[in-house]
Design a protein around this nucleic acid. Sequence first.
DNA 1: CCAGGCTAAACAAG
DNA 2: CTTGTTTAGCCTGG
Length: 589
Amino acid sequence: MTGRGRGKPCKAKSPDAEGAKRKTRLDKIKQVPLPSSQDDTEKENETANKRKPKQKQVNHGEEKPSVQNAREEANLRTNKEDTKTPAKGTNAKTCADRTKPMERFAVEPEKPGRTIKRCGGKAKAGEQNPEVMTKMKSDIPNDTTKASTPKAKACGGKAKPRVKFAEETPETQLEHAEAKTRKVPEEEKLGKAKTCADEAKLMEESIERAITPKDKTAVDSILNTTLKNLKIKKNDRSKASQVVNEITDNIIKHLKQNTQCFKEVEEPLRSGSYYENLKISSPDEFDVMVPILVERINVEPFGDDGAFYSVALKRGNSLLKTFQENDILCASKMLQEFREEVKKCVKKYKEWVVTKKKPGCPAVTLTREVESVTISLDVVLCLKVKSSWPSFTKEGLKIEGWLGAKVRQDHRLKPYYLVPKYEGKGNVENDNGVLAKDIWRVSFSHVEKAILLNHGSEKTCCEREGASCCRKDCLKLLKHLLSLLKENDSSFDKFCSYHAKTTLFHACCSRTKDSDWKASDLSLCFHLLLEDFEGHLQRGELPNFFIPSQNLISGPGRKKCKHLADRIKEERHKGFPIFRQQLHVKGLV
DNA sequence: CCAGGCTAAACAAG
DNA sequence: CTTGTTTAGCCTGG
């Protein structure tokens, strides 16, 4: 679905650059009405002819180790999934555990830890990463995961166990391969090798028993089939995006033309999983932030976790004065007015319905049916703040080891956003007499999106000539797992996909290299990601990736956290029966 | 401001 | 499997 040109890093400073870019797309849509039309000779000419070997030879620059910053988009992923609660001074130290993944293994007895890597992905021996090879020579050369395609149903759920390669670790192949890819990063040898090696030894047998190649192949198969099933159909995407873009454009137009207070809204920032290429199953949820630049403001923390703030207007800002009370920009007033305007506009489009206001939720949610599926669009008012990020973010976004210090700095030079979101009762006051309903929560959705779209430690990660990684697939699977678990147990309803996303971010910071996430190691990587998530749940601590002092899972309570951790562990150990069952229901296995 | 170029991802074909 | 085509979304040069 979405792609973003990586062509050039567009520095965050040019706020204008985002003008009417989408115009083109809309035009295109118009003139190409039917996918099935066969009269499009000219279409073919235009495309087929001129476009073929598009390769981006450009910017293989060297200046940045990893990513170029995408651009400032923004949003918040809010409402429906919100469960954040001020973290009673949690001040999670979490970074500690993040940075030393190995320790977990010592603590957790039965679990295979990364040793499992040996059984790792379908990787052909030749592409195993060096770490693995040096550590344990007995990799199993599973052929590929052969994600049993949908049709392979007969054998009820698991693909043919590719037995043969079971025991006879073909040393020869490995040595061979090893010789070829012998680049072995330094830190890896020095840093981890020691601990890993021991553990590898120790756990070797037990793992060999616990996860036989057969199981492993079956797991690979389930994960890959599940992923395939989570893909969004091209047609669905096309239809959904068309209606969503249309209404979005019209809302923006309305705000600019027919309102005073909102006439300065900027271009919408498309965020959330659809625009991060992480939407699963169906394109039925869209998030669009509608930013208003605010200058000359005072931003003061509300509560102690650093996620919520009150906003005071200094002089100027005439347009927003009307939402002011005692110098405070009242989120509730502003959102209410925004909502009215959106409703006014949407009234003209009969297919769309504005859903009822939910307390504390920053989104104006619109829904409509497209071919019997309900699509929802969250339109979120937000303030765009160009000054430096709140000090609570100082220890957040620890991506230096993963994406590099320069990328971090680039992101931190971008604006941040505030959305009219609060928790608990709106009429609760803080010391300064500000009501909860009038406070704002920070949002870094634009950075989340930028990172996910440019997520490799190498610049070429997942690009045509680079290796592909499984970071996003792992996240899709985790989101899917979480949503299936939630379906079956309503006590999990305070957990949301943002928890999954945050877990991935933390995981990427502890396993920083692209080779830690090789596409061929999907089942291993997913396994480790689940262990990470279970760890957060067990400890009852999942720090906001940007604001470490905010614990995202203080809401659900320890008991529910542990329960969820146990359920996930169970799925992991049993080879994901919940995925299997799901595939079964859909007749895909 | 916008036309045109580029990307990721779905998908079709071999 | 590999290779090519299509298309929504994004970016830039002019």
